[in-house]
Design a binder for these strands. Sequence first.
DNA 1: ATAGGGTTAG
Length: 639
Amino acid sequence: MAASVACHVLGRSAHGPSRRCLHFVPHHAHPLLVAFSRLCAHGPLCHALALLENLAAAGLRADPVAVSRLIKLCVRHGTPSDGRLIHRYVHGGGSMGAHFASSLFVSNSLVSMYAKFGLLDDALRLFDGMPQKNVVSWTTVVAALANASGRKEEALAFFVAMLRDGVAPNMYTFSSVLGACSTPRMLTALHGSIVKVGLDSDVFVRSSLIDVYMKLGDLDGGRRVFDEMVTHDLIVWNSVIAGFAQSGDGAGAIELFVRMKEAGFLSNQGTLTSVLRACTGMVTLEVGRQVHAHVLKYDRDLTLHNALLDMYCKCGSLQDADALFSRMPQRDVISWSTMISGLAQNGRSVEALKVFHTMKSEGPRPNHVTMVGVLFACSHAGLVEDGWCYFRSMEKLFGIQPEREHCNCMVDLLGRAGKLDEAVKFIHEMNFQPDTVIWRTLLGACRMHKNADLAAYAAKEILKLEPDDQGSLILLSNTYAGLRQWEDAEKSWKVMRDRGVKKDPGRSWIELGKQVHIFIAGDLSHPCSEGIIQELRRLFSRVRNLGYTPQTEFVLQDLANEQKEDLLKYHSEKLAIAFGTMNVMEGKPIRIMKNLRICGDCHAFVKLVSKSEGKVIIIRDPVRFHHFQDGVCSCNDYW
DNA sequence: ATAGGGTTAG
């Protein structure tokens, strides 16, 4: 009966001469074995499994290579139960079990299969019981642990155990273990060993090296490995572009993208996703739109579409984001979360919460990131009660335990709303040890509501944890300056100077054509500076007619009023706006990105410019957006 | 039989 299945598969007579149709099956093999090998290679899986049972019954030993293929077939089909079945057959005792138990091929395949199904404990149990292990066995386990979340330490431990066992790592091992590398020191050591054993020319090893250098923040290191390579392939290009995009160097990423195309490589989904992320970081909407044209080819790639969606949100173009979101063929939790925080960051909190309600009824189950977006929406719209409600119910409704991020949102929510005492109470009662992020949030709220005592307390807590933190010293002196307590403000500046901490200058940038123009506070070195100063003068006289007076409280130092006005006049966003009103086409919004949060004086100025010039102005700071139109800002003066 | 790249918050 089984023999006739075999003959059917082979398409020849049961007793005819066997041919060498499959190279790994000896030509004198039993027809059942030949048939089995063929089924393992081409499927269908269920026939191969049925035949495996017959082989066991007939006492025949299948080729380990064929069994490995069969295991791979299970992985492709996504059926771990079939994999377990095979495991039981080949290790289950009997003559066949005894035969396969000693086959490294089969055991390694099984370990790999369990790992691919995420059944790491099964994989490790099998691995531990193996009488012999080779590089492949070790590498499989190291790779599995390096890819699993939170098990990187174990991956490294296995790597060390492997070396102690006298097994030499190969390029597969190194590219796997690099994924578990978490400190620059460790990376230096690994890179050293790789060079020593001469594996540094392997593209896989190199792309892993690039990736780790970049992820650890060493852009130059990654770039160096990249530049030393003789041959690049698409994935190596993608690694280095992604590295730049992820570490915030959007311009570097796009520059590399251009070089990649010059080198004759065609981009794929991965490349485009990183390029979009670079556009997101730089707020280059026009470049992003061009990328959108290429995205159309990949209408089934959700990751890519999510990156596109985020780009539109972060470039402040909510119409595009909305349109894309409603047209997307599929939406996952990331798409919904992106849309919710995108709306919230653009000052459209009510719509953000509406999307969240739609998501609850017809979308995927919200996760912790979704809830950060929801709480963010509440805090930036002053919806204290709603915020409490979502915070208290998230565990019961969605099984999401409040994490640090959510607590931080709550402190922000209470602090912004002026409930500073409640915010402090919340910090002391939450389930986490307060960290600098939380204290900094409180400090920001103190600055907003001019509470110097509490600000000093928060700043002290931050400096306990991070003695050289410049941000909190600046915030603290800002708070004192806002209260005109110049002595105290000066004192915290002195602390900064003594510690050698320098304030990051304010920077704003704007995209014009294919160029990004950068403006630095007080710096008039832009080639168009003369024109910009003239334009600023014109804008100032226009907004003065609408009631603008310089709000010198936003200048930190204790100077004469005129000097303060001079400092305010050349804040980077004012320079960028003058450049924008001069150059941005009629009917198009002026989009500006900046590295620091916008000050109150600039905010008032821009509101009036939007009115006097009849222009939509969109400014993105590191946290949120301000859409200025007709004298009003989307944040309702609440940021 | 084992290995490399891409999306959401702060």
